[in-house]
Amino acid sequence: MNPVVAMILRRLGFGVLVLWAAYTLAFLLLYALPGDSVAAVLGGDLSTATQQEIDEIRHQYGFDQPLIVQYLTSLGDAVRGNLGTSYTTGQPVTAAIGQALPVTIELAAWSLLIAVPGGILVALAAVGARNPWLRNLLSGLPSVGVSLPTFWVGLLLLQFFSFRLGLIPAIGARGFAGVILPALTLSLPLGAMIAQVLLRSLTHEWTRQFVTTYRAAGLSRVRLLLSHALPPAGVSLLSIAGVVLGNVLGGAVIVETVFTRNGIGRLAETSVTGQDMPVVLGVVMLSALVFVVVNLVVDLLYPILDPRTRPVQESRS
């Protein structure tokens, strides 16, 4: 078989394995521990329900079955694309996710559009600046960026732009005006993380001998940075692509709550509050899927971007 195809198949198989394991762990976590799911279905209050109602719910959701049977049934459904129905709204989980997803994708797209170039620029400037004072300042920025509480940054932006300046309505803005503040908020930790990783590997490459070689050959500082330090350092960004996109989903929980946007993050937050296990499980699986797909793509990109990871060329001499 073609080695590339074999590699892709192996990676795909591994991805499916990770998804299965994530499903199993999440299922165990959410269903095996003693929590009262019936109460969750009834909105947290058991006192008004009759025993008959309770039994009915137990039967309807399969709580009367042994755990292993529940697990196998739900796994079988999940494989066929059915993630069950929400305890609180009765809506199919896939539909709920489908509804929320575009909102989050819009947010993710904008914030990545800000974070990726922003992070790269800051890292480049931090290494490239001649002035040592400026260099120190810039290299300190990313670690401050990752240290700020996201929800707090969101509130500050809201306070400043909506209440102080009145530029953007606090709630209910549509289109660009509605997404810009949440996107800025989310892009801060993402950009800072990108800058941090890139800065670290740029600094590492910058001290390597080939930079001296080319400096001694007469290349300018900018050229050394862009064409010699950046390409090998940029490869390190690939390895965190999965984590960055994961953080988009994680950050969305906070940002969508702060800015009241009905995306995946908000869905996660409300379902956790209501102990709506099928929805929680669905969101967890969505994030695992994103992670698996991103890493699959990254694995395929590596050999294209980094010749060192390619199989060694046959000696032609």
Binding site: A21, N247, V253
Partner: peptide, 24 residues
């Protein structure tokens, strides 16, 4: 290490939320 891989495939805040959903 595969278990660790799986834990890392879910963003940490969501993982924490899942635990909160389970434990309260």
């Amino acid at each position: 290490m595969r278990i660790v891989d799986v834990l890392q495939s879910v963003p940490s805040l969501l993982l924490s939320l899942a635990v909160v959903a389970s434990l309260g």
